[in-house]
């Protein structure tokens, strides 16, 4: 019974990955719309873009990790 509950929890935690995907899409989309408005400034901001994506993605990875822990380690 506990095992089944852990599986349900893992599935719920995996929703977080989708949320992180939305976040990453937001970052990239906003960057793109900004870059198209001012293409000359875009080249200097790619580093910032990747940092932003990394931070947004890290939290998704956390939820993925929680899912994995529930599946395998609990």
């Amino acid at each position: 019974m506990e095992g089944e509950l852990a599986h349900i929890g893992a599935g719920l935690a995996a929703i977080g990955s989708g949320a992180a995907a939305i976040g990453v899409g937001n970052v990239a989309g906003n960057f793109l719309s900004g870059a198209l408005r001012n293409p000359s400034a875009a080249a200097g901001q790619t580093a910032t873009l990747f940092i932003g994506i990394a931070f947004a993605e890290a939290l998704g990875i956390f939820s993925f990790l929680v899912a994995l822990l529930l599946m395998f380690a609990v």
């Binding site: 990394a54 931070f55 993605e57 890290a58 990875i61 956390f62 993925f64 990790l65 994995l68």
Partner: peptide
């Protein structure tokens, strides 16, 4: 924590 888990998590996933 985030620094390490990001790298390992991405690759593992």
């Amino acid at each position: 924590v985030s620094h390490s888990i990001r790298l390992a998590g991405n690759l593992m996933a």
